[in-house]
Design a binder for these strands. Structure first.
Length: 471
RNA sequence: GGUCCCAUCGUCUAGUGGUUAGGACGCCGGCCUCUCACGCCGGUAACAUGGGUUCGAAUCCCAUUGGGAUCACCA
């Protein structure tokens, strides 16, 4: 059996959006799963809407998703000669003919057909006129007028189209540029694509494409039309539903592995399994398990999955993903004894890396500012004594290991008769400025000796002032 | 409007003629606990409707309804 060859053909008219990312993913996964090839093709024949910036944005997004390709990128704009050569073959074989009907005339035909309640289509005026190539003429496909064209779709099953519903569509425009449905087929044939996985907004194009394959005597690829991704209001996902650009999710602190896990699960399943590593996805992805109904993009679920992936990684693996986000807030890894330790303390508490960076802020800053409500509640004159004792005890510890820290706390608890909870909360406020943080020992370890001691002394001063004000 | 597709908890889904219709997210409660989380335990909630076929339908067929896609010299 031939190796599977899939492709992803974005048109560079904007960033890579969620739906596009998912079809890229399905094609990539299928190629990797089968040990086949994945080709990247840029469909830039629309010269007015295509931009280099979009091409770059697509590459950037693919790179972030860690979707690599084996072949390409091909640019359709550089393959015009190939398409025209195939157009010539079609014409010479009698599968295409020149048509001089004006766009207005064709428009009029459509209007009439629509008014009659029929499918708007070209009426075949020039079909038998035997016109040759000439300026201003378009090349039309001589489509079969009767019978049916059937699409055997891997996900949707067999779909039958009446040929009478289809018309003699344009292959080459009057300006000599080939059209989409035509170039796609030529590309897929010449690039050896044997598995076409794409959004199901393409099913209506497929019968036309199948007819071109037939006219060219080429073997049909396997077609798999995957359902759309919808917004919460069940309409096609768009800007008003929030972020569309894939890289926006990177910037919001989602891990690429979590993002692809979510995207694949939206429209594909493997029994009850929800969490997949990239490896598992490659190992288990098959076309057979793609669902047939459209799915709503759910940020809450993406978030939950992201949290799972954050926890599943080692702290070191998260560093390269977190650093750019920290940098955005002016936080640098060098300002902390061990970034890995900081990350480890926050892993079970962060749904996104952006959240993690926010929660990590106190580790980096020079000074803490106390949450006013918490200071009022926790910094009472009575806490001065235990705070002083703890500061003194920690001063003496040679090394801030968890065991040594715990011993120091225990000593203070014994001396004061206070429970850990009574001591930990004021200390937490002293160290972080907040009432919520990682475990107190974890926090101290990650904060490091220098900052811990400085903040404890700062708190002692604050408490002394409070005590004085009281008297 | 024509053509085509789709239809299980709010959401993502498992299910392929016989299940107390399962899981996940969310939400609610409890446990754990130095806070917040994590984790664990439990709860909430679905087969769009109507006809068939069958001893028996979420599963098969038809219709209805509802959603979606597409109808270019765009891709």
């Amino acid at each position: 059996m031939d190796p599977i060859v899939t492709r992803f053909p974005p048109s560079p008219t904007g960033y890579l959006h969620v739906g596009g990312a998912r079809t890229a993913l399905f094609n990539w996964l299928y190629a990797r799963h089968t040990g086949g090839r994945f080709v990247l093709r840029i469909e830039d024949t629309d010269t007015v809407r295509s931009t280099q910036a979009s091409v770059d944005a697509i590459f950037e997004a693919l790179r972030w998703l860690e979707i690599d390709w084996d072949d390409g990128p091909y640019f359709q704009s550089q393959r015009i000669e190939i398409y025209l050569d195939y157009a010539r073959r079609l014409y010479e074989a009698g599968h295409a003919y020149y048509c001089t009907c004006s766009p207005e005339a064709v428009e009029e035909m459509r209007r009439r057909a629509t008014a009659a309640g029929a499918n708007p289509r070209y009426d075949g005026t020039c079909r038998e006129r035997g016109l040759g190539p000439q300026p201003g003429a378009v090349l039309r496909f001589r489509a079969p007028a009767t019978g049916t064209t059937v699409l055997d779709d891997v996900v949707k099953g067999s779909i039958v189209f009446q040929n009478s519903e289809l018309d003699d569509f344009v292959l080459v425009r009057s300006d000599g540029m080939p059209t989409y449905n035509f170039v796609v087929v030529v590309d897929d044939i010449t690039m050896g694509i044997n598995s076409v996985i794409r959004g199901d907004d393409h099913v209506m194009n497929t019968p036309k494409q199948i007819q071109i394959y037939r006219a060219l005597g080429a073997r049909l690829p396997v077609f798999a039309h995957v359902p759309m991704v919808l917004g919460p209001d069940r309409t096609r996902l768009s800007k008003r539903h929030g972020a569309m650009s894939v890289t926006a999710y990177r910037d919001m602190g989602y891990l690429p592995d979590a993002f692809i896990n979510y995207l694949v699960r939206l429209g594909w399943s493997c029994g009850d399994q929800e969490f997949f590593t990239r490896r598992e996805l490659i190992e288990k992805f098959t076309l057979e398990n793609i669902g047939r109904s459209a799915g709503v993009f759910d940020l809450a679920k993406l978030q939950a999955l992201n949290a799972d992936h954050i926890q599943a990684n080692g702290p070191e693996a998260l560093v390269p993903h977190l650093e750019p986000i920290l940098a955005r807030s002016g936080l640098a890894a060098g300002d902390v004894p061990s970034l890995a330790r900081v990350i480890r303390s926050l892993q079970p508490r962060s749904k996104t890396l952006e959240e993690m960076a926010e929660q990590a802020r106190f580790y980096f800053e020079e000074e803490v500012s106390y949450d006013p409500a918490a200071a009022k509640k926790l910094f009472k004159p009575a806490t001065l004594d235990p705070m002083q004792r703890l500061a003194a005890a920690l001063e003496k510890i040679p090394e801030f290991s968890e065991a040594a820290l715990e011993a120091a706390f225990t000593a203070v608890m014994d001396a004061t008769g206070l429970k850990l909870g009574k001591i930990a909360q004021p200390v937490r406020l002293a160290l972080t400025g907040r009432t919520a943080s990682p475990g107190i020992f974890e926090t101290i370890e990650a904060l490091g000796r220098e900052k811990t001691l400085a903040r404890l002394h700062q708190a002692v001063k604050y408490l002394q002032a409070v005590a004085e004000a009281e008297t």
